[in-house]
Design a binder for these strands. Sequence first.
RNA 1: GGCGGCAUAGCCAAGUGGCUAAGGCAGCGGUCUGCAAAACCGUUAUUCACCGGUUCGACUCCGGUUGCCGCCUCCA
Length: 486
Amino acid sequence: MPIKFYNTATRKKEDFITIKEGKVGLYVCGVTVYDLCHIGHARSTIVFDVLYRYLQARGFDVTHVRNFTDIDDKIIERARQLEKTPEDLAREFIEAFYEDMGALGVLNADVEPKATEHIDHMIKMIKTLIDKGFAYVEEGDVFYSIEKFEDYGGLSGRRLEDMRAGSRVAVDEKKRHPMDFVLWKGAKPGEPQWPSPWGPGRPGWHLECSVMSNHYLGPTFDIHGGGEDLVFPHHENERAQSMAANDAPFARYWIHNGFVTVESEKMSKSLGNFLTIRDALKSYHPQVLRLFLLSKHYRSPLDFSKKDVLSLQTGLVRIYRTLERLESLIGPFQKEDVPHAGALSDEQSVPFLKEFIQFMDDDLNTAGALGLVFEKVKEMNRLMDTHDDNPPEDMLSRLEEERRHLLSAAHVLGFLEEGPKSFFVGLSNYSETVDEDEIEGLIEERITARAEKDWAKADAIRDRLDAMGIILEDGPQGTTWRVKVS
RNA sequence: GGCGGCAUAGCCAAGUGGCUAAGGCAGCGGUCUGCAAAACCGUUAUUCACCGGUUCGACUCCGGUUGCCGCCUCCA
């Protein structure tokens, strides 16, 4: 069975066939670095991170390009407000991007180009477009003439006539057609600028992705991704530029992720519900956030609500508790066992991994795949329950094997990558700080009381700890405690 | 006005033209435990917004209605 992706360009799920056997060129529109990333950026970045991981696990040699837009009107404006240079501002938020996304377990892309590194290539493409008659110069600006490109609208399914009716934009009168867009923008005094044949200025936004995808992946490549809001106009314009300049098809598969709302409302600065990754990480463990963002199909809208995130957290805690239980039986997971590229090949005989592949092959169904993970966890717990005190050797080796399968699936989703201990320590940071000595002391006291069968006293101590947010577990090996997290 | 998407139990969320409609959270009953906790077992949608149509058969395909959302302007 082939991998299938929903292709925005055709509005259908299609079999994924690469241009070159075994190789995938993946271009994902990154962020404009004028502010901190929010939870919506996190979803998009994580979704394509999972796509990247999955294609690699399936054995493809993937070239993943994720750009930074580091010159743009918003950056200039924000820099002016903060009295910084646009370069410093961009550098600062690129750093923040790595910090935030790194916390969420996002891998670096293979190439992470910045728009300002490709100005000369952009000028070259603009020249080509002018020479071919797709672009015109007006007083230091260069515009793309959409009427010259017959397939304009071919990606988003829009017709020019329809759009004109709904246009609410004050149209730049230099444009010959209201939907024409800028390729090169003449600089006003004091603005960042680069020399060009049309005077000093800076590139238009859409141009950078055309140039950089062409530069790193060639004129025609496999997958182009981004948030669904980019379909129009950004991707439509990118496509028009690239196809006109290169005389070649552009991306073969267009993949777009759905939006994130916060407590059922669209994120916006005016509503004050603009949730940055940084703020979200103050309330939730990064693994909880990551898994939450993968708990629904990537194309559907996702509502970020505290209640739903916490219920997902409870589930994740259960998974980690199982891993903890496994460690006590068969020791910690060895890092060398981390699955290598191509681990999820077509000839998969392990039923669990086979099912996992079926879900992921079907348009990256992370939600279905996650359900599978929970089923496996239950199965392993059940197995451990049957031989609580004296586990036979063959059961231990079976558990070891199943844990390896579980973790190789989890690796594709980018979670369960740390040990249970470290996870629980991390999670406890989200609760009030606790005084370990005090807790240990109380537990000692309670052990004595229990030995004397003074149940009233034992229960009183347990209640007291409970009030402190500490949960006790009396097991065969003695009493353990953990912090109540939700 | 145009384009597109979504509507599944108390909540979140997969999925399929006919076989028991995944999974998580919450709830209830049970096993275990001094009692708990954790884990496990059982249980919670005769039904998939509404109305028609296609079909031997639809929640799944088609048409319409209602509701919600996104895009058409910078936006992941």
